[in-house]
Design a protein around this nucleic acid. Structure first.
Lengths: 334, 334
DNA sequence: TTGTAAGCGTTATCAT
DNA sequence: ATGATAACGCTTACAA
């Protein structure tokens, strides 16, 4: 195996005829080096192909520049989009993203956080699942920052970024009522994540306030196929719903396809549908789904700026962002 | 700012009443430690919340365990799916994925590789764009392995993983001919990546062999919207095509939607369509697109096993994988 | 099997 | 501004 032979600051120093501290200073932001020394160092570095060893730097500075992204279902439109935004903004802030997939088992979020600790990540951002409280404490104790996105957790310490799910749900109900819908349904997966449940509860509560009943159906994982099953269940009821709020766009796409192709139901004439996330497919002409746009850029910005903050303790630890309603033609009127 | 206070092997050693090398050995695979010592060390580690510092370990071993994934358009279905497969299989192999987004500028692949070098990544896997040859040489010289996926590059050193694009293209043509199609078209983006161009050339060549002409249209980036534009251009021609092979599924979805909704063309009765990638949406009931499945798991397996190989030089450096034809109903017959 | 000691490539401290 | 020197937390001969 071809041994790794990265060139070190020592070699650069020798070639440039300076000390190795001079080399180090040249690559340290805000250190004082004379233009002449700097030039010599840069020249030698270029010639030798020198690159600062961030492993060693991290060891010394106690700051690796690594931020760990912990996520499941990353092939999914919303998730991959959020990963993209986070990765980009981390890069812009001079940090680098490490990716850990937690698709497999249940304890895998804990395992992922352990991995983050091993690489001395400056922070971990959790996009899916919930870690055991003991592990989050471990991270915090080690000075590792934690960001929870759409996890809606109570505990102190991590930054919690959430959306105004309940308010969104209530806006959907209003839209359904304005469209003259009578029989409301909510289609959810069985994942039971905080944001999904918040949308469900918010929708039911808003309906109840108007004296309207909501039929709730839950099935499987949060994906297209589940949407199809949910449609089959809800659309074969004796009292067929004429409006359904799906917890995510993926569910909504599956629901809409089954409504149209299997039940020959016309959307939005006979059935109004709303989703959540504003994935790319929601805007495709086969769907034209009315939905809420996940403010991924804003989420990423909140997370990344918080990571740069001097004292996370005094800063606010909970952020609630607004999801804009994207009006398309899956609901009548507008 | 809460200083990082990770517990070190030293502290574990003191608490366990052993030397710090004993601690190190306990966490080193295949090192010799007595069961008794091991037990004491593990106990102390657990109590103190010790985790091996991979930064320091990487420094010593000259092997960080980090693999850098360099990719653009990672919010896209095919890309995010490939990232998922790679990340998972790297984890299974005891490595960890670092993610670098290259959406921004052109030299960003080079910048990404430099970042990989700084973190002393054991390898870099390039999913999009092409690095400057000088940079790849730099990586190789530093003992960093390189994998190019669907880049179809000539240079020696990196592992090149490609698909049999030309053969796939030829199979599409055969299917079109069997379906009785007469006027063939190829819809491509302007990205001009090796795999996209190989599909285009392969399709044209296969048609030519049968004395058939192909209308080729290229537009914009490789996405849904471009597919719509391409449809507008191709379907307004005097000699309207009755079969179109789209370079990717995303293009095909846009094409199909526009054909149906804007031109009221029936697929596959009046127009046969094929795509490439087998993204999730291709199987959705609104599309039912005949396409080729990207063997993402196999691609990831090839890459990861090659990384574990002792001597990359003697191993084969070019792999061509087969993309299965997924038959759905966007082509007549079957 | 175990401990001692040297060394990995940095940066921070402290003289100069 | 610059150079020597001491860490950082780990692994690995080498000796016991």
């Amino acid at each position: 195996m071809s041994q790794k032979v990265f060139v070190s600051a020592q070699e650069v120093a020798e070639r440039a005829g300076v000390s190795r501290s001079a080399v180090s200073r040249t690559f340290t932001h805000g250190a004082s080096v004379s233009p002449e020394t700097r030039r010599k160092v840069l020249e030698a570095s270029e010639a030798l192909g020198y690159h600062v060893n961030h492993l060693a730097r991290g060891l010394m500075r106690n700051e690796s520049g690594i931020v760990c992204l912990i996520v499941s279902d990353m092939g999914t439109p919303y998730r991959s989009n959020l990963i993209r935004a986070l990765t980009q903004q981390l890069q812009d802030a001079g940090k680098i993203a490490m990716l850990v997939n937690t698709d497999r088992s249940d304890g895998s979020v804990d395992l992922a956080l352990r991995q983050a600790i091993r690489y001395r990540a400056d922070a971990s951002i959790i996009l899916s699942g919930m870690p055991d409280k003991s592990i989050t404490q471990l991270c915090l104790k080690n000075g590792q920052r934690l960001v929870l996105i759409n996890r809606d957790d109570e505990q102190e310490g991590p930054l919690r970024i959430n959306l105004d799910d309940a308010e969104s749900a209530s806006r959907v109900l209003t839209a359904f009522v304005r469209a003259g819908c009578q029989r409301m349904a909510f289609a959810n997966s069985e994942a039971g994540t905080p944001s999904l449940m918040a949308r469900e509860r918010g929708f039911i509560a808003a309906a109840k306030a108007l004296g309207i009943d909501v039929v709730v159906e839950r099935f499987g994982p949060t994906g297209y196929e589940s949407g199809k099953i949910l449609a089959q269940r809800l659309l074969t009821r004796r009292e067929r719903p004429d409006a359904v709020f799906c917890a995510t766009d993926l569910l909504a796409c599956g629901f809409m396809d089954t409504a149209r192709h299997q039940f020959s139901i016309s959307v939005p004439d006979q059935l109004c549908i709303a989703g959540f996330d504003d994935i790319a497919q929601a805007s495709w002409s086969s769907y034209q789904l009315t939905t809420f746009s996940q403010p991924v850029e804003a989420i990423a910005r909140e997370a990344v700026t918080w990571l740069d903050e001097a004292d996370p303790a005094i800063a606010r630890q909970s952020v609630r962002l607004h999801a804009d309603l994207i009006w398309r033609s899956s609901i009548r009127g507008g």
